[in-house]
Every structure is written in structure tokens, then in C-alpha cells.
């Protein structure tokens, strides 16, 4: 089993940042009350990041991936998480063979 030094530092950095976000709420529990636009911006962080990560694969790789992403999005509102993943993977395999 190998352990790359740069990879280890990256993992430790991710772990430290994550732990910081987890305990930060403990110290601002009395003060952090977001409302209106600030709250909307804060709530938008998770979907905004998730979409930014996958947008190149979903939109600019090819037609098979773009159509499969659209099919997955439709399935996502009707199926549990694993079912959605299964639909997406099957769709992309079929479309790559067709297109």
C-alpha cells in the first residue's frame, strides 16, 4: 500500500478545513442569524458547488453525456439516490453505443 506525500497533505488539509466548519457553529451559535438574501446565498452554496463540479462532464463532453444528464435529472425527482445513479449510468452506456 502506497502513500504519496502530496496526497497525504491534501487529505490532511481537507480534514482540517472540514473539522473547522464542523466546530465553527459551536462558537457562533448565539450570533449567526442569517435572513433574506444572505440566507438565500448561504443556502445556495451546496447546490452551486455540486453543479459546478459536474457541469463540464454533463454539458461539454458530448451528446451522450448531455442527454444522459437530462434523463438523470428527470429521474432524480422521482427515484431515491441509488436509483437515480443506476438510471444515469445505464443511460450513458446505451447512448455511447448508439451515438
Amino acid at each position: 500500500m502506497s502513500l504519496d506525500t502530496t496526497t497525504l497533505i491534501a487529505i490532511l488539509a481537507m480534514a482540517l478545513v472540514t473539522y473547522f466548519t464542523r466546530i465553527a457553529g459551536l462558537f457562533v451559535a448565539d450570533r449567526l442569524v442569517l435572513t433574506g438574501r444572505a440566507k438565500a446565498a448561504f443556502d445556495a452554496i451546496p447546490p452551486a458547488v455540486l453543479v459546478a463540479v459536474i457541469a463540464p462532464t454533463a454539458l461539454t463532453t458530448g451528446w451522450a453525456e448531455a442527454i444522459a444528464a437530462a434523463i438523470t435529472a428527470v429521474a432524480a425527482f422521482r427515484l431515491p439516490l441509488l436509483g437515480t445513479v443506476a438510471v444515469g449510468v445505464i443511460a450513458v452506456v446505451v447512448l455511447r453505443n448508439l451515438i
Binding site: 454533463a58 445513479v85 444515469g88
Partner: peptide, 15 residues
């Protein structure tokens, strides 16, 4: 098609 599993998973999470 496992490379697309991430994309599908993230679409599910965003939904």
C-alpha cells in the same frame, strides 16, 4: 459507465 456515476450522483443530490 462508472465514470458517469459521479455526475448522476451529483444530479441526484442537487435534486
Amino acid at each position: 459507465g462508472a465514470d458517469f456515476a459521479f455526475t448522476a450522483l451529483f444530479i441526484g443530490l442537487v435534486a
